[in-house]
Design a protein around this nucleic acid. Structure first.
Lengths: 112, 112
DNA sequence: AATAATACATAAGAATATTATGTATATAAA
DNA sequence: TTTATATACATAATATTCTTATGTATTATT
């Protein structure tokens, strides 16, 4: 598990990337998939995930449809056309940022 | 310039890395160095930087000495022995995190 | 019967950053 | 010469984002 501050700001990027590759996923499924894919190193909390999903739906980035599975509710999220664009931009921005950070963190001292 | 949420949580890592490679730097110098090294893509704000520096000093990660340059004050920060260890850990953790994120973001869809 | 897993949601509080404001000197431009 | 920009610190109000806690409810496991 990474320190919480490290992961801040990456939640939307992670969720949008996953959703843009799997045409529908529900909240709990997203948490499990991320946990599985990262070997438990990233565990999304519900308190962070659900409000973010709601916000992205309100912003037209995601759409939902609710399904009853037995007696339980399952709310599937999908990226809209706009959402796909946002997902691409987010991922591109993050990759750019990672390169910048790699440069910064590998930086040799510049004396004087 | 990156979206602000993207940079959240990386401030300490950036500052500690820079300070662990340059045995002393002052706040304004740090903002300028980061701006220069990232081609303006990361611009630390004073409102974020100074409180963080103060906190790290209070935690024994940094030490300071103040110098008068002309009639202006300049407060130099240096990493302590503890701080060097923390810097290494922060950078290592970030590199690990970046690899995890690269994997996640390059992820191919797993249908079914 | 009790616990863990599935599945949603929200509220209180903590942490971190943005934006705005303040002080003050030094330099460059109009 | 006065105005704007750069240097250099600091803090307060606000906003954002996350953690932790709480709540409801079903299903599966021990």
């Amino acid at each position: 598990m990474y320190s919480s501050e490290l992961i801040k700001g990456t939640l939307k990027t992670i969720v949008l990337k996953l959703l843009s590759e799997n045409d529908k996923m529900y909240g709990y499924e997203i948490t499990q998939k991320v946990k599985e894919l990262t070997g438990g190193k990233i565990q999304l909390t519900e308190g962070a995930l659900y409000p973010t999903l709601h916000a992205m739906e309100a912003n037209g980035i995601l759409t939902t449809h609710t399904v009853n599975v037995g007696n339980r509710i399952r709310k599937y999220y999908s990226v809209t056309k706009t959402g796909k664009q946002v997902a691409k931009e987010k991922v591109n921005e993050f990759e750019d940022f990672m390169h910048t950070m790699m440069f910064l963190l590998d930086l040799k001292p510049k004396m004087g």
